[in-house]
Design a protein around this nucleic acid. Structure first.
Length: 818
DNA sequence: GGAAACAGGGTTTAGACAGCATGTC
DNA sequence: CTAAACCCTGTTTCC
């Protein structure tokens, strides 16, 4: 830990001053100060005061590198509110969708004094025009990137942009997006204030230089954080103090630590390195927490467990619910979004006593605990050939979750050691260590592939020189020691894009290519303001007329707007163009599953054989050229994509959630994620098919509709009725109701017998447009037997009229039956 | 004879953004 | 190049 950095004079001065009260702040909208006072905020934390001193309220650029839960959001809020008070508009960029909702909930309160907030993520969108009227917009970095690509007009009205967790620029996959997006927003709005919020990192100064910003860099926290290592029966802290925490009998260290703090009324968070470990630890720790529960807590926990079981019918859910009943929970990306927030909320409400989590939790929404136990500090990393130690930054993020402001006297973060040597190593490696520096990953080819295309397509650069000049404004350029590397990779990428018909090069000098009219205006939703602003930005970049011109093709524009990795687009286009007959659903599912935009499903041992067989069985359905069986790794990728494709086909064949999660050994959250990505990619594939005039557009649309609703072809019409999902649609179909129109004429008794519940049935009939949807006095008819409880009208009901044999019992039993 | 305990080898391993147009059981 | 938990299987042990 970096205590007392001597070079930070500002910091030292501020800490010794009397606290700055919120009444001293000027430049905020009327009513803001009293709002904060009502919230119980009287004085600013020292880092916040420091931010104000360097001009946060006057539109000055600022990098705040401070620990989690030290009031970073307040720094952002003050900057944004003062920008709004000056008549401006602010954007708050977050790394996760869950954080977007968290921030919105926080900023919504500003409506009280007339400052409005809107959110936009891939999931949820307040319409674009509506966003233009909001004072503050919250969005994920990818969404902002997409808005830039699509030319949202209000972006050029921004006067303040906040980038939360800016250290994620270091992330190989998603960092470059944030980096490029910030550079574009700055070019678009030269006078705009930039506020970057970061965890404490090794090179905050470098980031500040890049953004022309003042730096607030401090370790200050509102509650003390003690870091320590537990070894044997003792817990040794960084301040030299020691606490006896005996490990009894066969119990694990973490169990002793959780029990110890629970007896003082404190909850804990245990970080482990795999999902399975998280689940196993949660089960074991349930034994600890269940001893310390009050009667009313048991009742509440039982309710929570019921909610969890209700959300999804899978083994993961059952296991989680069983743990929750005992006051313990696990948390990882295999959980559904609902389950995750149920667990997080219950933990914040102190109902759950302990969560065992993978690192997801450290990066996500705020879930502070009295004690944080970091059990595993190494994680499997194929690139390292085995277990690799976690970054200091990552461990510090986990440890930073310790201590709940206002509830705990202090927070404790504990690492576990099994030997004296390991204890020493942990102190050196993590407790006393500074976090790593943030390094830009922009020069990686996959990142450049997509951003170079987008930069050209949205008019930020029109020549190779202009492109390189734009890239000069990124963090990568300011960090790069290896001159020419970026240029070299850029040239490779340009060649790739040209080869795949995404861009065209032409000699400059205003040659009039009538075949391909300029497309800058494409997709500019907000009219001329946006277009002119974007064009101006491009003009700024292009000074030379000597260079050859770069222009996105029509296809290139589409790819950029669809937010696809060009390589994914190329794969899809190639696959569709090569199809001689109508592609099957499986063919399309495998196609999108092998694009880099689909997260890979891992091929387990023995599965290469299973899927090899499936491959030979259904080889003809697959699109494009299969790699030879002798190219081992490429063939394995092909089979892994087939596995993912098969999962999607199972889903679209109405296999139930439980069977799929068990068959592919995944959690409900993973299944939802796969389906979601497939839906997006097939939507994009449909646009591409239209763009290249493919004759298979309809096949793609149908395959997309089938994953979206998880139903067979014959149910697609039924699920378009609001309130009818995959299960209800199948039951209706089997009762002879095959299309929405049938709902308008069908016997009400049959409908009620199928749908169970008068309210649902009435509702659905109403949505189908039935004139008299009321179910008053209707007796349900059992769809299985066709027998009536009371009435005698059974005409027109054919229970087994399905075009698709009842699959439910078969799919239950046929494990591994691919 | 059969169930329970144990040993040894094999297997597995974190995370989740985006288009578009609206809503499961 | 570095680990550890869990599962499955086969064996031993104990009643």
């Amino acid at each position: 830990m970096r205590s007392g950095r001597g070079d930070d004079t500002l910091n030292r001065n501020t800490l010794q001053r009397r606290p700055m009260t919120i009444e001293e702040l000027s430049g905020l909208p009327p009513g803001a100060v009293s709002h904060f006072r009502d919230e119980g905020i009287e004085a600013l934390y020292p880092p916040q005061a420091e931010a104000v001193e360097v001009g946060a309220l006057e539109g000055e650029n600022l990098v705040a590198a401070v620990p989690t839960a030290s009031g970073k959001t307040m720094i952002a809020a003050l900057s944004m509110l003062s920008a709004v008070a000056r008549g401006g508009k602010a954007l708050y960029i977050v790394p996760l969708r869950a954080l977007a909702s968290e921030k919105q909930a926080e900023f919504e309160a500003y409506e009280e004094f007339g400052v409005t907030t809107g959110v936009t993520t891939g999931n949820y969108e307040s319409t674009s025009d509506w966003l233009a009227t909001k004072d503050i917009v919250v969005a994920t970095s990818e969404k902002v990137d997409s808005l830039v690509r699509n030319g949202a007009s209000w972006l050029s009205e921004l006067t303040c942009v906040v980038s939360d967790e800016v250290h994620l620029i270091d992330d190989r996959n998603r960092g470059p997006t944030l980096e490029v997006t910030l550079a574009k927003l700055r070019r678009l709005n030269p006078g705009m204030q930039v506020v970057a919020l970061s965890a404490t990192v090794g090179n905050a100064g470098e980031i500040a230089d890049w953004l022309d910003a003042s730096l607030v860099d401090t370790d200050w926290r509102p509650i003390d954080l003690r870091m320590g290592v537990h070894y044997g029966n003792a817990l040794n802290f960084d301040d030299g103090s020691t606490r006896e925490v005996p490990v009894e009998g066969t119990e694990k260290q973490e169990a002793a630590l959780v029990r110890d703090i629970l007896q003082e009324g404190g909850s804990s968070l245990v970080f482990v390195n795999s999902r399975r470990n998280a689940e196993a630890a949660a089960r074991r720790l349930g034994g600890v927490s269940s001893h310390e529960l009050a009667e009313d807590e048991r009742t509440d926990l039982a309710d929570l467990a019921a909610e969890i079981r209700d959300d999804s019918d899978t083994e993961t859910s059952t296991d989680l619910a069983d743990c929750v009943e005992r006051g313990s929970a696990f948390h990882h990306a295999g959980l559904s979004a609902t389950q995750r927030s149920l667990v997080e909320d219950a933990f914040r409400d102190r109902l759950l006593k302990v969560i065992s989590a993978t690192p997801t939790l450290a990066a996500g929404v705020n879930t502070p605990a009295r004690r944080v136990v970091v059990r595993d500090w190494r994680r499997f990393d194929p690139s390292a050939g085995g277990m690799a130690p976690l970054d200091v930054l990552e461990i510090h993020q986990m440890m930073g979750r310790a201590g709940r402001p206002g509830l705990d006297p202090y927070g404790e973060a504990v690492l576990l050691a099994k030997s004296h040597d390991e204890s020493q190593e942990l102190f050196d490696r993590y407790v006393w260590a500074d976090p790593e520096a943030v390094r830009s990953k922009l020069a990686a080819e996959p990142a450049l592939r997509t951003h170079v295309l987008a930069t050209i397509a949205s008019g930020f650069a029109r020549t190779r020189e202009g492109l390189l000049e734009f890239l000069e404004a990124t963090l990568y350029a300011s960090q790069s020691s290896e001159a020419g590397r970026l240029e070299r990779v850029t040239d490779d990428v340009l060649a790739y894009l040209e080869r795949n018909d995404f861009i065209e090069r032409a000699p400059s000098g205003g040659s009039d290519r009538s075949s391909e009219p300029p497309r800058e205006r494409e997709g500019a939703e907000g009219g001329d303001d946006a277009t002119s602003a974007f064009t101006a930005a491009a003009d700024l970049a292009d000074d030379a007329g000597t260079d050859e011109e770069l222009e996105a093709t029509s296809l290139g524009h589409t790819v950029s707007r669809l937010y696809l990795d060009p390589m994914s687009a190329a794969e899809i286009v190639h696959g569709l163009e090569g199809a001689d007959e109508r592609p099957t659903a499986l063919g399309l599912y495998q196609l999108i599953s092998r694009t880099p935009d689909m997260y890979e499903l891992y091929l387990r041992s023995g599965e290469d054989e299973t899927f090899g067989e499936l491959y030979y069985e259904r080889e003809r359905e697959l699109l494009g050229d299969a790699p030879s069986e002798f190219e081992e790794s490429r063939f394995e990728d092909w089979l892994a994509a087939l596995k993912t494709g098969k999962l999607l086909e199972d889903w679209a064949d109405e296999t139930d959630e439980e069977t799929i999660t068990e068959r592919y050994k995944i959690g409900p959250g993973d299944l939802r994620g796969k389906v979601d990505t497939a839906e997006w990619l097939l939507g994009a594939a449909e646009s591409l098919a239209r763009e290249i005039d493919s004759e298979w557009t309809v096949a793609v649309r149908e395959a997309r509709a089938r994953v979206e609703h998880g139903v067979g072809e014959e149910l697609l019409e039924l699920v378009s009725v609001s309130g009818v999902g995959r299960k209800r649609a199948r039951r209706l179909y089997e009762a002879g109701i095959e299309v929405p129109a049938d709902l308008r004429t069908a016997d009400k008794g049959v409908v009620l017998g199928v749908l169970k519940g008068e309210k649902t049935a009435t509702n659905i009939l109403e949505n189908a447009g039935r004139e008299d949807p009321s179910m008053d006095g209707v007796e349900p008819i059992d769809p299985g037997t066709g027998t009536v409880t009371d009435t005698s009208d059974t005409s027109g009901v054919e229970p087994e009229s399905s075009g698709k044999p009842d699959e439910s019992d078969e799919s239950q039993s046929s494990l591994g039956d691919f």
